[in-house]
Design a protein around this nucleic acid. Structure first.
Lengths: 145, 145
DNA sequence: CTCTAATGGTTAGAGCTCTAACTGTCAAAG
DNA sequence: CTTTGACAGTTAGAGCTCTAACCATTAGAG
């Protein structure tokens, strides 16, 4: 039958992604940073000395983008970059104490956001959803992390 | 037992949304326009005379954003705007023949993209996924269309 | 050892998004 | 009929993203 669907699966997917972003922004707004900066900072706290290329990969973005993002964070003293002694091309990035302090709780807040969004689903449904989405992403390019 | 999940549901959701965007960009790049312009143009072909506020709503964006987006399209002669005769505040937007011609096939291409992404799932699984996502979005703010 | 290709980053330029402040128009109350 | 508030849209300023062009450094081939 396949009646024309008013809201496709991909519409719903984009919508949910958008909602997560918006919810996250509400938490982060007080810190005077952006979601992207929050993700980067959080990642650097978990992975001190990460190289820019890695950051570009896990955020599914470009090296150019990471470059300007980190420049902004560095300008504000939230991040530090030092060239790798073994390979000067690579720049290792670290969250400064200020940066780490600023982002403390971000991870937790995002987890809370996720939980709020998924609240309508019970554990079984979440497992099903996770399985289905994994099946889809398995055939996609680019790893998530 | 709730072992720490390496890739959360929301991670997967964002990933899929990103993949859709990228795939769409591949199609659209030859037209020298952006995804956003493509969506707007496509919407205006389907809904001639739409008002900017509506466009902002369905794209889950701001009036300011629509304003500049349409300015770009208008500058290139792909869109026309005329004030509503009954309410001069409102500006009704129309895709020009050139604009409509440019975007012809976009909708179909996007549907094809969606189908490719969802290829790993059979009809039953898609139905389940759609149901689960709908359950989630039912509790979210902002309608999709 | 040298030449070439790959690799990590950066810059420039353009588009999108947001917030905040502002214009002009319409509508409703008094 | 005026005043006040809601509403549609715009502009300015800043951040993010992308592509394309470009540096510097490193690795590999010969």
């Amino acid at each position: 039958m396949d009646a024309p669907r008013l809201t496709t699966i991909l519409d719903l997917v984009r919508w949910i992604g958008w909602a997560q972003r918006k919810a996250g922004e509400d938490w982060i707004r007080s810190r005077e940073i952006t979601m992207e900066q929050g993700f980067a900072l959080g990642y650097l706290v978990q992975n001190p000395g990460a190289i820019q290329r890695d950051l570009a990969e896990i955020t599914r973005t470009s090296p150019a983008s990471v470059s300007s993002l980190l420049q902004g964070l560095e300008r504000r003293g939230l991040v530090e970059r030092r060239a790798d002694s073994a390979d000067v091309r690579s720049k290792r990035a670290y969250a400064t104490p200020t940066g780490a302090e600023l982002i403390a709780g971000f991870e937790a807040a995002m987890t809370a956001v996720d939980d709020t969004i998924l609240a309508p689903l019970d554990q079984t449904e979440r497992a099903t959803l996770h399985a289905l989405l994994t099946k889809v992403t398995a055939e996609l390019p680019q790893p998530t992390r």
